[in-house]
Each structure stands twice: as structure tokens, then as C-alpha cells.
């Protein structure tokens, strides 16, 4: 019987190799920081990759202004603790037009505040490579994506014209119009991410652990009422429910799960028992069967 740490060590070495290659081969790489567990793992791997030196690139958070308050405080604390060169970008034009999940609907709002926000930030700072924490087990179109994945002009992903990627030999060359997305966690699973967080004692947002939180029901999904902007129905009041989150995003678009898991061990145990795919709690993905591939074609990470 193999120890699962052996698998994690192998995954870790490969991710470190990818991070080093990105730092060395690109002029101006950046790491996307979404504040979630995958980002926490990615940051930890970056610390390992460049030890005893510091993380040699900026860390970018695209803030949609609708994130959980606990995410923002965790982000700022992490940046301070790890001495990160943190850059926060908000699509100000979107804010000025009053973009919100309620005025635009989930898809359009995500396109404006997340996809366009990301594209603005990348263009404005001239980043030629952006490192993200996506994994191939998350979603069908991700399963086909390369580790070093080229974006054409306008940050467009063309899944039918991907570069061939062989062995562990990566092609970091770009034409003037192209940029790169890099996915060091491609081969990791959700289970690996949690096991690694445990073995390495990595800090993650408290939102992953169950706590009584004010929430309402929308259909069969539980939505946390994180601030006064959330539109309640006439006569409706938020109720305290014992809930936690499996993924983190914009609070009105991220459903909670009822749970009593308050420790890492309990979270890992619950994950083994529940067996729903991770993105089932994301409201936007359910729009259409193939929506992730379409969003990525527009420049979504």
C-alpha cells in the first residue's frame, strides 16, 4: 500500500517545476489569486519553488466587489503574512454602471466584472503569463486544456488550435498578440488539494468551515446574506443556518452546503461521503451544459 503523501509529493514536484519555468521564461508573469483553497495551495507551492528567495511575481486579485467579506479580510491578512506583492483590480467602468448579479443576471455580470476585469488587469499591466489554480478534474473542458495554454488576441482560448504539449517540455514562446495561462495544479484533484492543505498546515479561508451564518433559500440552494445589498423578498428575513462553502466566489452566486464540519478532518471526511462535483454549488455554471468552454473562449480564466 502506497502512502498518499507519495502521490502529493510527486504532484508537488511537478507543480514547482511548472512555476519555476513560468517565472524564468516569461518577462512579466503574474499569479491569479482568487482567495480560495486552490489559490492557497498555489501560493504555498510558489513559496516552496523559490525558497529561500521570495515569490518573484505579483499576485493579482480581480475583485468583483461582491466577494464575501471574510474573503477580503483573509486576502489582506495573507498578503501581509506572506509579504505578497498584491495587486487588486476592479472593473471601475462596470461598478459605475452599477453591474451586479441582480441587475445583469449571473452570466452577464460574471462576464463584465470577472472576465472583463481580468482582461483589463492583464492588458493594463502587460502581463504575458498568468498562473491560475484550475484543475482538470473540475470540469469537462478543463480536462482537455494544456498546462501552458495559449490565449490569442483578446485573451481568446481556441480549444481546437491548442499547441501540442509533450513530456515535460514546455513551449513558452509567444507571438506579439498572444499571452499564456499556466495551470500548475492541472493534475491535482479536489481531494489532493484538501489532503495537501492538511499535511502542509496551509491556512484557508474560514468560509470552508461550518458556522451559523445568515442565509436565505433560493430554489433548493442556500445563499448567504453577506451584507445589506442582498435583495430579500417582501417579509423575508435571513435565518441562521449551520453552513459552509465548497468553493468560494461572489456571495450571491455561491451556494452553501449545510454541514457540521468545523475542522479540516471533518471537511475531508465530508468530501469523501458527499460525492457531488465541486462546481455543483456554483450558480453560473448550470446556465448551460457547455458554458465553461464558452466562457473560456471569451477570456474567462
Amino acid at each position: 500500500m502506497n502512502d498518499k503523501r507519495d502521490v502529493l509529493r510527486a504532484l508537488e514536484s511537478e507543480s514547482i517545476e511548472i512555476l519555476r519555468e513560468t517565472a524564468a521564461a516569461f518577462k512579466n508573469p503574474v499569479m491569479l489569486y482568487s482567495i480560495g483553497k486552490d489559490s492557497s495551495v498555489l501560493l504555498h507551492l510558489a513559496r516552496k519553488a523559490f525558497y529561500p528567495g521570495n515569490i518573484p511575481f505579483k499576485v493579482l486579485h480581480v475583485d468583483t466587489t461582491w466577494k464575501f467579506q471574510e474573503m477580503i479580510s483573509f486576502r489582506d491578512q495573507t498578503a501581509k503574512d506572506l509579504n505578497l506583492d498584491l495587486l487588486v483590480h476592479i472593473n471601475e467602468a462596470g461598478v459605475a454602471e452599477g453591474a451586479s448579479p441582480f441587475t445583469l443576471g449571473a452570466s452577464e455580470y460574471t462576464r463584465v466584472m470577472k472576465t472583463m476585469g481580468l482582461r483589463q488587469a492583464l492588458d493594463q499591466h502587460g502581463f504575458d503569463a498568468a498562473i491560475g489554480g484550475s484543475r482538470r478534474d473540475e470540469e469537462k473542458s478543463r480536462a482537455k486544456e494544456r498546462i501552458f495554454s495559449v490565449r490569442e488576441a483578446g485573451h481568446r482560448w481556441d480549444p481546437r488550435a491548442q499547441r501540442q504539449e509533450l513530456w515535460r517540455t514546455y513551449n513558452p514562446r509567444l507571438t506579439a498578440d498572444q499571452t499564456m495561462r499556466v495551470f500548475p495544479l492541472s493534475d491535482w484533484t479536489e481531494q489532493d488539494v484538501w489532503d495537501y492543505i492538511k499535511f502542509e498546515s496551509i491556512e484557508v479561508s474560514p468560509l470552508y468551515f461550518a458556522k451559523p451564518r445568515p442565509s436565505v433559500l433560493r430554489g433548493h440552494q442556500i445563499i448567504m446574506v453577506d451584507d445589506e445589498r442582498y435583495p430579500l423578498l417582501p417579509g423575508e428575513a435571513a435565518e441562521l443556518r449551520l453552513i459552509r462553502f465548497r468553493t468560494l466566489g461572489c456571495y450571491p452566486l455561491t451556494a452553501a452546503v449545510e454541514s457540521t464540519a468545523t475542522t479540516l478532518d471533518e471537511v475531508i471526511q465530508e468530501l469523501r461521503e458527499v460525492k457531488l462535483s465541486e462546481r455543483a454549488t456554483r450558480l453560473i455554471d448550470g446556465d448551460k451544459e457547455v458554458s465553461m468552454e464558452q466562457k473560456k473562449a471569451e477570456g474567462y480564466f
Binding site: 482538470r136 473542458s141 480536462a143 480549444p159 481546437r160 493534475d187 457547455v290
Partner: peptide, 18 residues
């Protein structure tokens, strides 16, 4: 996974599964 593949019913690119 990819749309074109589902339309044509064939596999045109490599997909990775754990």
C-alpha cells in the same frame, strides 16, 4: 468534453482523468 466532439461523436483531443 468539447462541443465539437459531442457534435461529431468522436474524440479529437487528449483528455486527462484522474
Amino acid at each position: 468534453g468539447l462541443e465539437a466532439e459531442r457534435e461529431q461523436g468522436i474524440t479529437i483531443d487528449v483528455a486527462y482523468r484522474s
